[in-house]
Nucleic acid binder design. Structure first.
Lengths: 130, 130
DNA sequence: ATTCTTGCAAACTATTTGCAGAACA
DNA sequence: TGTTCTGCAAATAGTTTGCAAGAAT
């Protein structure tokens, strides 16, 4: 079986931050949060740790509109996100219909090995102007 | 009304290339294609032109897995893409069901001003190993 | 003639990597 | 102790921008 990464202070710190976050955050933001909490962790370590967590399926990554990658601790299994474009808060959603539709369309056109990406962006109730 | 961009050799060259392409291509690839055809166009101009075309809805842009933006001449109107991960050939697809589903889910959670992104990746019949 | 566009080089942003020293098992 | 991890600085990749010269209207 796969060996697990070492249990270091830095890894724990990153995991803790992710646990406290309610939305997606960039590597920089996570780095800054750690700093302001007093947890000293190098930026490269933040990147490396997040990358490892994504590979271990402990964290979901998505590309924000401006080219930066956003991270969030997520439940396992295939799901999509409904993300607030203002506060980055996210809701996990499932769409069996969509999955089927996507696979169907792909098959119709002779495509195999099908994957898809789907994200929904909007303004959440709390962030909506009154 | 909005003024249209000037009709320059460079703009024409980029438009022509996009017209000939059957799939998504990066700015670099477009730049290289122009070069090898003998059309001398600066890389920044390629970027600027593509950006203008995207804003004018003449071209669709999508983020490739490795962080680069891919461009393709597309029909107007909201649609999604089924893209071959090997040759980048793309098929435009529509999914009214998906649109409704996405809007519905968002509304359910109190989100407004909803947008979504959806891309399907696979291996097309021609690129599939036999 | 005036205004928009181009091309180059330099600037930028997000992310990755080499390497020596530090930390974990 | 041996191996993995960290942090820094430097490297990369993709993209953007300032500015002077060139082209379109």
């Amino acid at each position: 079986m796969a060996e697990s990464p070492r249990n270091t202070r830095q890894r724990r710190a990153v995991a803790t931050i992710l646990d406290e976050l309610h939305g997606f955050a960039s590597a920089q933001e996570i780095y800054d949060s750690l700093r302001s909490k007093g947890d000293q962790v190098g930026l490269s370590t933040v990147y490396r740790t997040l990358q490892a967590m994504v590979e271990a399926d402990e964290v979901d990554a998505l590309r924000g509109g401006d080219g930066e990658t956003l991270f969030r601790q997520c439940s396992a299994g295939h799901h999509h996100h409904l993300v607030c474009r203002s506060c980055s808060r996210a809701v996990e959603v499932e769409g069996p219909t969509v999955e089927k539709w996507a696979d169907g369309v792909a098959a119709e056109h002779g495509f195999s090995d099908v994957e898809h990406t789907l994200e929904i962006f909007g303004t959440c109730a709390e962030c909506a102007p009154r």
